[in-house]
Simulated scan of single mutants.
Amino acid sequence: MNAVKAGIEYVLVLSVLGATGYFLYTKAVPLLTPPCSTSVEYSIGSIDPRYGLSTSTLVSYLKEAEAPWNKAAGKTVATYMETGSLKVNLVYSEQQAATSLGKNIDADQKVYVAAKASLESLRRAFEQQKNAYEAAVASFNAASEAYSAEVAKWNARGGAPKEIFQQLENQKRSLEARQASLARDAADINSLVTKINQGVTALNAAAKKINAKVSTYNSAVGDDFDQGDYVSDAQGKRINVFEFTKAADLKRVLEHELGHAIGLGHVENPASIMYSYNVGSGLALTEEDVAELKAVCKIKS
């Protein structure tokens, strides 16, 4: 009876997602009219359908983004109007495509990790069954050798007495039953090996696809890129948002760009809305944000 050998071997090295760096805001464009002399009236320009965001949802986000500025100013410095001259656009950029791909990679990796854990569980089951099988085979072989030696002894004497002969017959039937059981165990183990090897093949194929996506992602995302900008030129005034990961991220970008539309420049506190990089969280204004607003709008404390 042959021992079972499992050909299980896989080596997977997933690429590490490249750091996206920080999201860079563009600088404010100097205004031709005195800041805060009139309320900035904005409206919705265009929303790329790939964002899956409705006009009403974007308007609600913008109202959340304008609220801190209006409260700090003690008056309305930014407000939504259907005919507002400042157009807010969601532009589906290469960076957003990379962000979406990054989310897809995260989902794929979770599935991969779960599949790998399941495969490792099967491998542990295989090791347990293989060890038990090998121990059973060793025990069977020892019993078989003892039986053969006993048969040879009595054959050398010209035959065994009836009682001994019956005992040997019983041992033979027991050994045959054990052999049949071992054959079934071997079939079960070989079936498990086939299942494991199929899982390894599928897992390696999944890893290959993930690594290809990671390579695309790393190539698409640079160290710094514009997450949004405010533009005022001959074509009009507009806020363009190029990338965001979630609603809270989008609201913060909108609040920053509305600040530029009001006339504010960048401040030095990394936690501030008007810091040049989007590294903070939430919509609350910092002391530096409020100081910049009051200085630009000439609001007395």
Rank of each mutant, 00 (worst) to 15 (best):
I273M: 10
H266T: 12
V241E: 05
Y277H: 08
A271W: 01
I262M: 13
T245L: 12
S276D: 14
R252N: 09
S272P: 09
A271V: 01
G265I: 13
I239K: 01
G236N: 10
K237L: 12
L250D: 00
V279Y: 07
H260C: 11
R238F: 03
E243K: 12
V253D: 06
I239G: 03
P270W: 12
R252Y: 11
L250W: 00
Y275N: 11
K246N: 13
N278Q: 05
G265Q: 14
L250H: 07
R238M: 09
E268W: 12
H260T: 03
A247M: 11
G265K: 15
Y275Q: 13
L258V: 09
V241L: 08
K237I: 01
A248C: 03
Y275K: 11
G236E: 09
A248M: 03
V253G: 02
K251F: 13
K246T: 11
F244T: 02
F242Y: 15
I273A: 02
F242S: 08
H260A: 04
F244R: 05
N269K: 11
E255S: 05
N240C: 09
G280Q: 09
H266I: 12
P270L: 04
N240P: 10
G282K: 12
V241T: 01
G265H: 10
L264E: 02
N240E: 13
S276G: 11
E268Q: 15
N240L: 13
E255Q: 09
P270C: 08
K251R: 15
F242Q: 13
H256C: 06
T245R: 15
K251L: 09
R238W: 08
F244E: 08
N278M: 03
A271I: 05
H260L: 06
G265L: 10
G280E: 02
A261S: 14
S276L: 13
S281F: 00
G236M: 14
E268S: 13
L250M: 00
L264D: 01
V267N: 14
F244A: 10
P270I: 08
G259N: 05
Y275M: 06
G265N: 15
P270K: 11
K237R: 15
L258M: 08
S272A: 12
T245S: 15
A248N: 03
R252I: 06
P270F: 11
I239M: 06
Y277R: 09
M274L: 14
L258E: 07
E268V: 10
H266M: 09
H256Q: 08
S272V: 02
V253T: 15
G263W: 00
V241H: 02
L258D: 10
L250N: 01
I262D: 15
V267K: 01
A271G: 03
I262V: 11
E255F: 01
K237F: 14
M274S: 07
K237V: 02
I273D: 02
K246R: 11
I273S: 08
G263P: 02
P270Q: 05
D249S: 05
I273W: 07
A247G: 12
E255D: 13
S276I: 10
N278R: 04
G282Y: 10
T245E: 15
V279R: 08
N269F: 05
A261G: 12
A261W: 14
E243V: 13
